Structure formats: structure tokens, C-alpha cells
Computed example of a mutant assay.
Amino acid sequence: MCRWLAYSGSPIPMDALLYKPKHSLIDQSQHAEMGAETTNGDGFGIGWYPIDRVAKQTPGAFRGIGPAWSNANLRDLSEHIRSPLFFAHVRASSGTAVQESNCHPFRHGDWLWMHNGSIRDFARLKRDLLLAVDPELYPEIQGTTDSEAMFFLALTYGLRDDPVTAVERMAGFVEATAAAHGVQDPLQMTVATTEGETTWAFRYSSTGQSRTLFYSTGVDDLRQLHPEVDALRMLSDDARLVVSEPLGAMPDAFNEVPESSYSVIHRGQDQMSAFNPR
């Protein structure tokens, strides 16, 4: 499938997570250890919010169809862009075309969305799923992926007002549509979404065997455990990271997100709750 990470906290250069860790996201694009595929070379994307962001400002985005590991522009940008909240994604296509409009993260207004997983038999379900998208939102769909369809369904169900309920309704609708078509165990997802202030991360699958997802231990605790790691000094106490798989250097730095659950991360506070499709 794919690998992704979501960071929030003190502004840092994006390459601090994309390139520098032992098992960075760029390393995972070639050598993933916990994904359905080892290689995630069907495109990449980053989305970020500026340090001096004003309310409702559209986040920046850069996406490409080639493999992340060979893109010189991605390396250069990630060295120079500092951000307090950013998403990064490396893609392994589940069947849809390798094209820029299919690369994550997807963007609508001040919202970002990225996904690892799939909707089983999406081609069979696609028409019914997309017909449920709000007619005012439908023209903004640019690609052909199940991931973008999930995003616009969540927007239709009220993502901007109540993200958790919207994603639960989206997941429930996908499962109900699949059942009507005789498609079993249709949904596999780890999803992250944000409006630039709060990050929501979801782990769920219809089978109860979801793709991996991890969240970082508190930075203050890590400093005490690893005083030798200089990089921890650049992070604020409220820094948080959600990843498809750990970045390597400190095995005690990450905890697994429980099955069928979601996390809400806001200014160093995080809350974990059960996820129940509606």
C-alpha cells in the first residue's frame, strides 16, 4: 500500500523526518518493513502549513509521480521548508493510475487528507460512492483513487464541523455500499486529516486487521530516556508524530495505535478513542 507520517509541534525542517532518521520515510519508500509492499515508488507528496500562517490559509503542497527517493526537488524543498505541521506520503498504487492528481496528501481549502489502504473492488463501487458526494464538492475531485473518494465523502458528511463523526459516516457508507454489491470486508484504512491546528488519525479495517499505525512518545519522556540524542533538543514538549511505521532510531519512541481507534492531537494534547463506523 503506502507509507505516511504526520508531524505537529515546534517548526522543524521537513528533511529532519523525511531523510535524516535511520528508517526515514524516504528509506521506507524503498525498504518498508511493515507494509503490504516493500517498495512505495508510485508517487509522493508533502503538504505543510507555514510558521506565520493566517486563519483558513490554504496549506502548501508538492506532489510528484516518480519515486520519492530520486526526486531532487523534494530533497531541496524539505531542507529549506520549516513547518509546525506537515504531512508526507509515499505511494504504492492499489490499481489506479500513477498520476499527480492521485498522489497524497489531498487538499480542500485549509484541509489535508492522506490514506494508506484501499476499498476492495473500488471499480465496482465507485459509481455509487461518488454519486453520494455533495454536488457542490464533486467538481473538485481531480483524480481516480478510492482515497480521494473517501476524502470527499468525509467532506460531504461534515468533516469541517465534526471530523470524527464524518469519517465514521464515510466508513459506514462504504461498508453499506459494498454489502449491497456483495463485496465482503471492503475497507482498509489508516487516515490522517488536519485543518492546520488539530490532527486526526484513524486506524480501521472491516476485517479487524488494519495496516500498522504508530504515535510518538512524549518528547520530555524521550529526552530523559535518550539524553544522547541531540535532535530531541530541537523539539518542543508538544511535538507529536504519527507514522505508518517507526522511523528507527529509538524503538521506545513509538507506540502502536490500537485497532479500530482514532487519535486527536492538538497543541501537545492527544486523546485516543474507539472508532465506530455509522
Rank of each mutant, 00 (worst) to 15 (best):
M234R: 05
M234L: 13
M234E: 07
L235D: 00
D237W: 14
D237M: 12
D237K: 15
D238T: 12
A239M: 04
A239G: 04
R240M: 04
R240V: 01
R240K: 09
R240C: 03
L241W: 02
V243S: 04
V243Q: 05
S244W: 01
P246R: 01
P246G: 12
L247N: 06
G248I: 04
G248N: 12
A249K: 00
M250E: 13
M250V: 05
P251Q: 10
P251S: 13
P251H: 05
P251E: 13
D252H: 05
D252T: 11
D252M: 03
A253E: 01
A253K: 00
A253T: 01
F254R: 01
F254Y: 15
N255T: 11
E256L: 02
E256F: 00
E256M: 05
P258K: 10
P258H: 07
S260M: 07
S261V: 08
S261D: 06
Y262H: 15
V264N: 01
V264Q: 06
I265H: 09
H266S: 09
H266W: 12
R267V: 04
R267C: 01
R267E: 07
G268A: 11
G268V: 10
G268T: 10
Q269G: 00
Q271W: 14
Q271S: 12
M272L: 15
M272P: 00
M272E: 12
S273C: 05
